[in-house]
């Protein structure tokens, strides 16, 4: 039985942000922590009967450490600056990522989950291969790019799900995290004119067209998600209800009409 606990999700999130704050109080850019990833990890680990709550917490913390590390390393500026504030920001982004990666390894070593370390290391390898592909524009089409992004976003959660032999909701996880990522890209672009996806696609397309293309993709993903969520098995009923309500809330906010709606 899946037991969704918003307080637990918040606790994990707070823990990582507090840790980063203690070590790097002067960091300007706080890590973006995906509550959705914590939620999915929580449901995956709930599925495994033999985990004590404390152990579950340590494992999720460890996984979120490394996820955050990889995300932070994406913020490292590609430019070189000599001894100014931007340079220090760049240096801190490298170090905070490295420290969080170390914490991931340390946490899982403490609970003696050596096999899980290997599984997540495999996910990190895949993520960096795919990030390099995206970065070097080895992409044939927007569909190809979206597919690569989907894999990068979900690789760690999916690898963990496979390790715990929970495979029923892979498509839900992948599409859900992709939808959230696209929303985040649009928001970041609107606020700071920064988005890896929009920048990449703008190399061969008009920027306004690219934004419209990304906006137009989201309803399709949401409609697909609606059907995937409804097909979730009975033992994931609580997750199904939670995601459906959340999907409806997002669709109302965005003015997107779902089949049910």
């Amino acid at each position: 039985m899946i037991d969704l606990d918003p307080k637990f999700i918040q606790k994990i999130k707070d823990h990582i942000i507090q840790f980063a704050d203690e070590k790097f109080g002067d960091i300007k850019r706080e890590p973006v922590l995906s509550e959705d990833k914590i939620l999915f990890l929580d449901t995956i680990l709930d599925y495994s009967d033999n985990l004590a709550r404390k152990e579950k917490e340590q494992i999720i913390q460890a996984i979120m450490y490394v996820q955050t590390a990889l995300d932070i390393h994406d913020f490292v500026s590609i430019h070189s600056y000599k001894h100014d504030q931007i340079n220090q920001q760049k240096q801190m982004n490298v170090l905070v990522g490295d420290l969080l990666s170390g914490k991931f390894y340390h946490n899982l070593s403490r609970v003696e989950y050596i096999d899980l370390i290997e599984v997540i290391a495999g996910a990190i390898r895949t993520i960096n291969e795919r990030k390099m592909m995206i970065y070097h524009s080895d992409i044939h089409s927007i569909e190809h790019l979206i597919e690569e992004m989907k894999e990068v976003e979900s690789a760690i959660v999916i690898h963990v799900a496979e390790y715990f032999k929970m495979t029923e909701h892979h498509d839900v996880i992948k599409n859900w995290l992709l939808m959230k990522r696209l929303f985040l890209e649009l928001k970041t672009y609107a606020q700071e004119q920064k988005s890896a996806v929009i920048t990449l696609l703008s190399q061969s397309n008009n920027e306004d067209d690219v934004i419209r293309m990304v906006e137009n993709m989201i309803p399709g993903i949401m409609i697909r998600l609606e059907s995937l969520i409804q097909s979730l098995p009975l033992h994931l009923n609580e997750l199904r209800m939670f995601l459906m309500n959340e999907l409806k809330r997002i669709s109302q906010k965005q003015g997107i009409l779902l089949e049910e709606g």
Binding site: L70, H73, S80, G97, S101, K131, M132
Partner: peptide, 9 residues
């Protein structure tokens, strides 16, 4: 730097 970060990770 980006290539260095991905290579290190």
């Amino acid at each position: 730097n980006r290539v260095s970060m991905y290579t290190g990770d």
